[in-house]
């Protein structure tokens, strides 16, 4: 770190995190209802992309179940709160426990096998989840989902409007902080080693299967927590949100932004979330075609994604590449 700015030296992670939170949450208070809604969803996509990037980019595992866990979180909190009438903290804990149980049940058998198995098993899980939601009768509300509920008072507080947006901002910042710290810890290095060369990692004493299972479970739980927060954004949950289409979109966000880099995940999520708004006057509802072309182009031309392009430009302007 350069010492041009004396403040930067003393900015501890906690202060920087608090600053980011204040900026992200504060912005919500200057927006109308419509923009608040769009902004909340943008923040949720960024949260999901950060988690997925840790799984796919850092740990090298391809999974299509991220939105299924998002959905498990969302549906479980609604069902626990309003059908089983559990108190809020207990409902949240039960939802997380459910995510952990599902994640372990999928990850433990499929990481024993080499290759592409996790992707296929999670693809089936993601699709199966939608089938269960659609056929779940009164428990899941079928194809129409569940609606007509609202966030209960928590300790006498009823969060609404921009204050609820602040909760989502807190979620983004906390997710980012957790993942960055994890990435820089021994566990993050173990994940990268497992991604790059599992045999070498095993030879260095990394328990490959356990590393994969922990990374999968952790990111799935993060997705589940995101889903719990999402449940009170629209105050309705229905099956199409949690389908395989959005799981593909999440993968595309991380690839286009730059897999393995937190900043890349954020850039990819913001770009692909906002792109439909800019494109709709030009191509109507066919923005997915642009996404597909972007992903293929990214893989063929710049496998490190947009952040890779940024790195190269930054290096050129600095004169000599750092390191």
């Amino acid at each position: 770190m350069k010492s041009e700015n004396p403040l930067a030296l003393r900015a501890t992670p906690l202060i920087r995190g608090a600053g980011a939170f204040i900026v992200l949450a504060g912005a919500a208070f200057f927006m109308g209802d419509y923009h608040n809604d769009v902004y909340r969803k943008l923040l949720l996509w960024v949260t999901l992309a950060l988690g997925y990037n840790f799984l796919f980019g850092v740990c090298g595992q391809v999974a299509f179940s991220h939105f299924a866990f998002y959905g498990i979180g969302a549906y479980s909190i609604v069902i626990f709160l309003f059908q089983l009438h559990l108190p809020f903290p207990l409902a949240a804990i039960c939802g997380i426990a459910l995510c952990i149980a599902f994640a372990l049940a999928v990850a433990i058998p499929s990481t024993r096998l080499e290759g592409f198995y996790l992707a296929l098993v999670t693809l089936a899980l993601g699709q199966l989840f939608i089938v269960v939601l659609n056929e779940g009768g009164t428990v899941t509300g079928g194809t129409g989902g569940i609606a007509n509920y609202r966030l209960p008072e928590i300790y006498g507080l009823r969060l609404r409007g921009p204050w609820y947006t602040a909760v989502i901002a807190l979620l983004v910042v906390a997710t980012y902080a957790v993942l960055v710290r994890l990435d820089r810890s021994w566990f993050g290095r173990a994940c990268r080693a497992v991604r790059d060369n599992p045999e070498a990692a095993a030879a260095m004493g990394v328990d490959v299967a356990r590393t994969k299972v922990i990374a999968f479970t952790l990111t799935s739980v993060l997705a589940g927590i995101g889903g719990m927060v999402y449940a009170f954004v629209d105050n309705t949950v229905n099956p199409p949100i949690f389908g395989i289409e959005n799981a593909f979109l999440l993968l595309f966000m991380v690839i286009v932004g730059g897999a393995g880099r937190h900043a890349g995940a954020v850039i990819g999520a913001v770009l692909l979330f906002l792109l439909p708004f800019w494109l709709s006057p030009l191509v109507g509802h066919h923005h997915a075609l642009v996404f597909g072309v972007l992903v293929v182009a990214a893989i063929l031309l710049e496998p490190r994604g947009l952040i890779g392009i940024y790195d190269r430009v930054a290096d050129r302007y600095k004169g000599s590449p750092s390191r």
Partner: peptide, 27 residues
């Protein structure tokens, strides 16, 4: 990708992108 020595995952993901391209071209 194959001739450039990219990991096996790269063409699999690129074909996933092509899945969307094919489908949306028809749509």
């Amino acid at each position: 990708l194959v001739e450039g020595g990219a990991p096996l995952l790269a063409p699999i993901l690129a074909l996933l992108g092509m899945l969307v391209v094919f489908r949306e071209s028809i749509s």
